[in-house]
Every structure is written in C-alpha cells, then in structure tokens.
Amino acid sequence: MAIKNGFNKRPVVNEYANLLSNCLLKIGFKHAIKREYRVFITHDIDDFARYDKFSKFIKALVGDIVKRHSIRSFFITLSDYFKINLNKQKDVYNTFDFLMNKSDEIGVKSRFYFIPGKIGESDVRFDIDNPKVIKTIKEIEKRGHIVGIHPGFETLGNREQLFSEVNRLRRYVDRLEEGRHHYLRVKLPVTLNDWSDAGLKIDSSLGFYSTIGFRSGICQEYEIFDFIERQKTGLIERPLLVMDTALRSETNTKEEFVEEVCKLNQLVKEFSGDFVLLWHNSNLLRNEWYNWDKVYQEILNKIKL
C-alpha cells in the first residue's frame, strides 16, 4: 500500500507521533522522549566466494557475454579468476576486512548475517561447516563486529529447519541474537514468533525488496506485539531501510544512488531514528559492481554518526 500510494519513503508513524507530541506540549503536557540517531551497517552473506569452483567461473563468463553483453567484463572475470587462483589477490567476495575497516573508521560495528546452510539445500551456495567460513566468523568476532543469522529459503514456515540452522551457527558464534531472513521472506506473525521461540532477539527482515523506504512506516526499532495471542513476543524489529540491489535497480547513476541514500538518511536523523543499511559482501569488487567500493565509502562518510 505504501508503494502504491507513494509514501514508502516517509516514516508516517514518526510523523504522526511527532504531531501528537507537539499537540500535547501546547496544552501543557510535559514529556521527554530522548533518542539518539543510530547507524546499523549490515551485510547478508548469500555467497562466500565467487571462484571457489570452476563451474562458477564458467557461469560468470557466460553471464558476461549472454546477460551483460560486455567483453570488458569477460576479460575482467578472466583476470580475477587467474589472479585469485595464483594467490595474487583475494576472492572478489572476500571483502570482510574491507567492510570491517570502513565501519571502524566511522565508529560502528558491521553485522554479518550468514546463511547456516548445507550444500544441497535450496539456494545454498556455501557450507557453513567450511573451515574458511568458520575462520572468517571467528575473525569477525575477534575484531568486535557482530555475526548474525540469515536463515535460508526453506525456513519460511518451517520451524524445524529454522531451529536446525540456528543451532548450526551457534556452534561457531559466541552470541547469536539477530539476523534477517533470506530474500526478506516473512510470513506474519508466524515467522517472527518462530524467531522468538528460537531464542533470537532482533529481526531486520521488514524492508522492501524492490525499492527503499519505511516498510514498517517507522524509522526506529520496536518490540513486536502478537495481535493474535494478544501479547508481547519479546522480539525487537529493526526495520531495513536501504538495500544495495534494490536502490541500484531504480537509480541510473552512482550519484543518484548516493543522493537517494542521503535524503532518506536525513529523514531518519530528523526523527533521531535508526538508519539500517544492507550492503552485500559480494557487491563491491566484482566486475558487475565495478568501483562500487568507492560509492560504499562515500555513503558511510555521509551517514556516519
């Protein structure tokens, strides 16, 4: 409804709350609501490595010609593949140090949401038990950043699968409390109740898949209330506001992309809200996202605390 009626980029709940607050002040009701603007940088780890298998390399080459119609991309893919396999550069999806470094520079913690999948499960592209994946998870925690869960495609409405994936990741994570569903697949209120029952405390799945804005109509986290059972769930929803792929699909230039992020961020600042950004680890260095690492740095410098 918000997209259809053109108010998806307005935090209408905050607007009405602010209006009510001002009315109460005018009639002499004094109250103090103190909130601070916060930034949450999140990364959904859908893919761990691009060229760990020869079949992925061939698929990328075919995509360069058939899908992207780019000879330039074709030769960049060739170059990347051989440099990576000759240990002359990291895999283009191995951007974990870069992302943590940039978050450290602006004084925030990156949140890395891993799919705890096993090869053979639907849309699983890496094995959570892979020693390289485990090593990366440990390094993220060692540096003081946060590891969360990105439940796979098969977990929607499937409590057993969700609980299984939570338990898989808990073997390697000291403190697992938050995450976001793969493809933002949420079935209310079932999904969020399942999260609460699995011992998770924060969800960040309520965002738009094809655009940006305030899917919950609010720019700050809030506690989920189960209207069917008429009780609090204890689960906090931290709404997603901007996803890299969604915004890129509706902007024509990098400059327009940055401008849209800044406009939304300014609204969040006005209401002392929570700016939640999703940027995939895979969308920084691969040739389809050439030079977007610089765009990412520019955005962080503009939205920093």
Rank of each mutant, 00 (worst) to 15 (best):
L241F: 02
H69A: 14
R230A: 13
F126K: 06
K59S: 04
E259M: 02
H182T: 14
I299M: 02
H150F: 10
F227R: 13
K232I: 03
R238L: 15
L86D: 04
N85M: 12
S103Q: 13
K88P: 05
Q297F: 02
R215Y: 05
H31S: 15
G207W: 12
K53C: 09
L300Y: 11
R215I: 04
I119V: 02
L267S: 02
K187R: 14
N281P: 10
D293G: 03
Y37V: 10
Y290S: 02
I218C: 12
W195G: 00
Y209H: 05
V62W: 05
T233Q: 12
E256Q: 09
T253L: 01
I224N: 03
D46N: 09
H150N: 14
E298H: 11
G234P: 11
R72V: 12
L247Y: 01
K263W: 05
K83F: 15
E260R: 14
V92R: 13
F112V: 01
R111Q: 11
R111E: 10
D129Q: 13
D91T: 02
I224D: 08
N281Y: 09
A49K: 14
F227T: 14
I140A: 00
N94L: 13
L188N: 12
I202V: 15
E154Y: 00
N85Q: 13
Q231A: 08
F163D: 10
V147L: 04
Q297K: 15
L162T: 06
L78T: 03
T245G: 12
L206T: 06
E139M: 15
W289D: 15
K26D: 09
R10S: 03
G234N: 03
L19T: 04
G28L: 07
G207A: 04
M100R: 04
G157E: 13
L192A: 00
V124K: 00
F214T: 00
R50H: 08
E160I: 12
F257V: 04
P131W: 12
E160H: 10
L206P: 09
R171I: 08
K254T: 00
F75H: 11
E178W: 00
A32K: 13
D123F: 13
R125S: 10
S272W: 00
E288Q: 11
V133M: 08
V261A: 03
P189G: 08
N18L: 04
D80G: 09
A32W: 02
L156D: 05
F48Y: 15
C262L: 02
K135Y: 12
G6L: 05
A60E: 15
